[in-house]
Design a protein around this nucleic acid. Structure first.
Lengths: 128, 128
DNA sequence: CCGCATCCTTCTTGATACTG
DNA sequence: CAGTATCAAGAAGGATGCGG
């Protein structure tokens, strides 16, 4: 039960100013898109396939999310000028990397979310 | 240059539905607050100390951020009914844990943010 | 000292309709 | 099929003033 103290346990965390990346990761759809692509064959999916897999996303939000990811170099857009047009999105190496970087947080959430939700209930009950 | 393929490299990532936690982590102040507390003596700081250390935060936003963290059990609030009143906030074990869980992402950002910013410049130049 | 209440602006998201 | 345009609703954040 020994309680480490002060800076010792937090070795140089020093949050990097992320220029909006973290806000993006915290939004409603971005991680879903990255994750779906990571599971796909060749890490590629068509727009419509993504749309079907991601429950509740609108065409507009999918487009916006994909544009931002493309701009950051986390996915690439492959456009095929057929009729009807076909567009595929592919996860880049960097895109895979950010998912791996999120694994630690993901495990932590799996383990701690129930506890957090209990705290929330307790808090909301005390001060309704 | 061998290119791993498909689901193999993404072993069971499966993003946990985080009930707002990730959105919180992506907001403007939450991680700053956690981090400042983690550096402090006994992982405790007064409201006013936090306010001084976190550049640009308003009283209102600091209060809101602290309330949310308290509600989730990531910090505890210690109230001393003196005059003038004194309030200290202390990082919990769980609060320390979420910072550790973020380290992977933080390292990744340190290494990849410059690349991302290059992609952004390139993208913005092509389509202004 | 700490925090709440109020007002206001901006950003994000969603609904819907339209186009190459 | 994939994307754009437009409008409306809501959330987030900042400024300021009051109160225990």
């Amino acid at each position: 039960m020994r309680q480490t103290q002060g800076p010792e346990h937090s070795r140089q965390f020093k949050p990097i100013p992320s220029n909006g990346i973290c806000a993006r990761l915290g939004d409603k759809w971005t991680v879903q898109v990255l994750w779906r692509l990571s599971l796909a064959d060749e890490r590629r999916l068509r727009f419509s396939a993504l749309r079907k897999e991601i429950n509740g996303i609108t065409q507009r939000m999918l487009t916006l999310t994909l544009r931002n990811l493309e701009r950051d170099g986390l996915i690439v857009r492959h456009y095929f000028p057929e009729v009807p047009p076909r567009v595929e999105y592919e996860l880049t190496e960097m895109g895979s990397g950010i998912l791996r970087a999120l694994e630690g947080l993901n495990f932590w959430l799996r383990d701690n979310l129930p506890v957090i939700e209990q705290y929330r209930r307790a808090y909301d009950q005390d001060k309704p």
